[in-house]
């Protein structure tokens, strides 16, 4: 089970400007596996959002191909409705798409569009809302009564109710407070581990993805510059900083401690790992 991106390029047509068109994505190849949480990071304008919009055919590549479980999504026999149900895309600030009087009806919108029976629609909506942490008594609440974090979870439930194989989220934690972030990531982790939903996450917070992702794609200027595990990517601190990114705080702290002579191993990208390593250091009786 995977999504394979093959030599994908996307040109943005701008009829107004003199130079006509420019590349937003250039020759991108990557594989997104269902059993591994994939994070896409990159500075602003690097093409992250553009790339994920290709995954469910909201944008059509100028060149290249995308294979969903081995079949090209651009093939004539590939149904785009099925694809949009299988690859659920949650946009940035999704809470602004809520439009119904209560969150339950809003969450029903997605599955209803799939042409399912009423019972099935409602049972899916219920499951999705429970999965993102709402209780039965919240179902009839208006989106306007909810807090920002709750509204965002309701919007994510709206996509989840279509029961996608993959859930693609564009900056899901933007604008949330630390508690909201923690809850969101716990929820995504649960969806992945317990319900087997493939998760793709666009972010520019290194700390979020270091904890969370099994694999990271780093985009810069429309190209993939790294495609590797977080441990290995975050050992390239210098390169990341030249494109306007950075390593997680824990890795940064580890770098500084090494300069002061601490003998720390590589790959300390989360605070937990750093703490263990420092404790080991002291126990060994080093400096």
């Amino acid at each position: 089970m995977s999504i394979e991106i093959k030599n994908l390029s996307y040109t943005y047509n701008n009829p107004g400007s003199e130079n006509g068109s420019r590349f937003v994505l250039k020759n991108i190849s990557a594989t997104i596996k269902k059993d591994e949480i994939t994070a896409i990071i990159g500075p602003t304008g690097s093409g992250k959002s553009t790339l994920v919009q290709h995954l469910n055919l909201l944008l059509h590549a100028s060149e290249g191909d995308i294979l969903y479980d081995g079949r090209s999504i651009y093939g004539d026999d590939f149904d785009r409705k099925t694809l949009r149900a299988s690859v659920g895309l949650v946009f940035q600030y999704p809470e602004y798409q809520l439009f119904e009087n209560d969150i339950f009806t809003d969450v029903c919108f997605g599955p209803k569009n799939l042409g399912l029976e009423k019972d099935e629609v409602e049972s899916r909506a219920k499951k999705a809302l429970l999965a993102v942490g709402f209780s039965d008594s919240d179902f009839s609440r208006s989106p306007f009564e909810l807090s920002g974090g709750q509204r965002r979870r309701a919007a994510i439930a709206g996509v989840l109710a279509m029961q996608p194989e993959y859930l693609v989220l564009d900056e899901p934690a933007a604008g949330l407070d630390p508690k909201g972030r923690r809850e969101l990531f716990q929820m995504l982790r649960r969806l992945h581990d317990e319900n087997g939903v493939g998760i793709v996450l666009v972010s520019h917070s290194m700390d979020d993805v270091a904890d969370f992702a099994g694999k990271i794609l780093v985009l810069n200027d429309g190209r993939v510059i790294f495609d590797d595990t977080p441990e290995r990517i975050f050992s390239h601190g210098e390169e990341l900083r030249t494109v306007g990114l950075d390593v997680p705080q824990a890795a940064r702290l580890a770098e500084i401690l090494r300069e002061y002579g601490f003998d720390l191993p590589q790959g300390l990208i989360t605070m937990d790992r750093l703490r263990t390593a420092i404790t080991d250091c002291f126990n060994r009786g080093d400096k």
Binding site: N56, Y96, G110, G158
Partner: peptide
Amino acid sequence: DKIIKAQTARGAD
């Protein structure tokens, strides 16, 4: 444009 895309992603026709 953003809203249209987001609702299309939820299967709006």
